[in-house]
Amino acid sequence: MNYQNIVSLRFYLADPSYDEANVKILMKYLGDHAPARTVFCCQLLETKWKLEIEAVAAK
């Protein structure tokens, strides 16, 4: 599998200000591929983390 197999992404951002960087990274790796995306802003359990990602891929 590769990035093109991703069908859904769910992001948990520790702060809304991280969204711009998150989108830039997505564009770098996914290019024109546009899986369904959901973004939540919330307090993460690990204080050092800026984001957590949940991904679903299918063949």
Score class of each variant (00 low, 15 high):
Pro35Ala: 07
Ala14Gln: 01
Glu20Tyr: 04
Cys42Val: 11
Lys48Asn: 11
Asn2Arg: 03
Thr47Ser: 14
Lys59Cys: 15
Ala14Glu: 02
Gln43His: 05
Lys59Arg: 13
Asp32Gln: 08
Leu51Thr: 10
Lys24Asp: 07
Glu54Pro: 02
Ala36Ser: 06
Ala21Ile: 08
Ala14Phe: 00
Thr38Trp: 01
Glu52Arg: 09
Cys41Leu: 08
Tyr12Gly: 02
Pro35Lys: 04
Val7Phe: 02
Arg37Gly: 08
Ile6His: 00
Leu45Pro: 10
Leu51Arg: 13
Leu45Glu: 14
Phe40Asn: 03
Phe11Thr: 04
Val39Cys: 10
Asp19Ala: 13
Thr38Val: 11
Pro16Leu: 07
Ala57Ile: 12
Tyr12Phe: 15
Ala57Tyr: 14
Pro35Arg: 06
Tyr18Gln: 12
Ala36Glu: 08
Gln43Glu: 15
Val39Thr: 15
Lys59Val: 15
Thr47Leu: 10
Thr47Phe: 09
Val23Trp: 11
Phe11His: 12
Glu46Pro: 02
Asn5Asp: 12
Ala57Leu: 14
Cys41Arg: 07
Ala14Thr: 01
Met27Arg: 14
Asp32Met: 03
Arg10Leu: 12
Lys28Arg: 07
Cys42Met: 12
Glu46Arg: 03
Arg10His: 08
Leu26Cys: 10
Glu20Ala: 15
Met1Gly: 13
Ile25Leu: 13
Arg10Ile: 14
Gln43Met: 11
Leu44Trp: 01
Tyr29Leu: 06
Lys28Glu: 08
Glu54Val: 13
Cys41Tyr: 15
Leu9Glu: 04
Asn22Phe: 14
Asn5His: 11
Met27Cys: 10
Asp15Val: 04
Leu45Ala: 11
Leu51Lys: 09
Asp19Phe: 14
Glu46Phe: 10
Lys50Gly: 13
Ala57Thr: 12
Val23Ile: 14
Pro35Gln: 06
Lys28Trp: 10
Thr38Gly: 01
Leu30Phe: 15
Lys50Arg: 13
Asn5Trp: 07
Ala14Lys: 00
Lys48Pro: 05
Ala34Asp: 12
Tyr3Thr: 07
Leu13Val: 02
Asp15Cys: 06
Leu26Lys: 07
Ile6Gly: 00
Tyr18Arg: 09
Lys24Tyr: 04
Val7Asp: 00
Ala57Asn: 09
Val23Asn: 06
Leu26Tyr: 09
Phe40Gln: 03
Cys42Lys: 05
Ala14Asp: 01
Ala55Tyr: 07
Thr47Asp: 12
Glu54Met: 06
Trp49Thr: 06
Lys59Tyr: 08
Lys28Pro: 00
Leu44Ile: 00
Ala36Gln: 10
Glu52Pro: 04
Ala14Trp: 00
Gly31Met: 05
Glu20Trp: 00
Val7Gln: 07
Ser17Asn: 09
